[in-house]
Design a protein around this nucleic acid. Structure first.
Length: 95
DNA sequence: CCGCTGACTGCGG
DNA sequence: ACCGCAGCCAGCG
């Protein structure tokens, strides 16, 4: 695992403002890496100190083992779900 | 080296 | 809306 990309990904996630979200693919693109899965892996390893709940799938859905917790955290900062789906066009962070 | 797995994605049927 | 599939990177057996 490349230490630099790891730090890069982490800093991008850390910079997402409250009430906004990014997809794994968005972060991969910004970080200049080819695989969104790598972003997911990095998040899975250790994201406790990051606003990890602001990262979700490109279509606005969330992996099921995180779904209820994540939707709750998002709701607390004004990101409302239409059922199990977040409207990305509305909440995606432009930077 | 091979195959499988996952906080993923876009395209096609 | 629901599949499946190819591409993707890294770790594990």
């Amino acid at each position: 695992m490349d230490e630099e990309t790891l730090e890069q990904v982490r800093s991008i996630v850390a910079s997402i403002p409250p009430g906004r979200v990014l997809s794994y693919g968005d972060i991969a693109e910004i970080a200049g890496i080819r695989s969104p899965r790598l972003v997911g892996r990095i998040m899975a390893e250790d994201s406790a100190d990051l606003p990890w709940h602001r990262v979700l799938r490109s279509n606005g859905t969330i992996a099921e083992h995180l779904r209820s917790r994540q939707l709750e955290l998002l709701r607390a900062e004004g990101v409302l779900a239409d059922g199990a789906r977040i409207n990305m066009r509305e909440y995606r962070w432009d930077g």
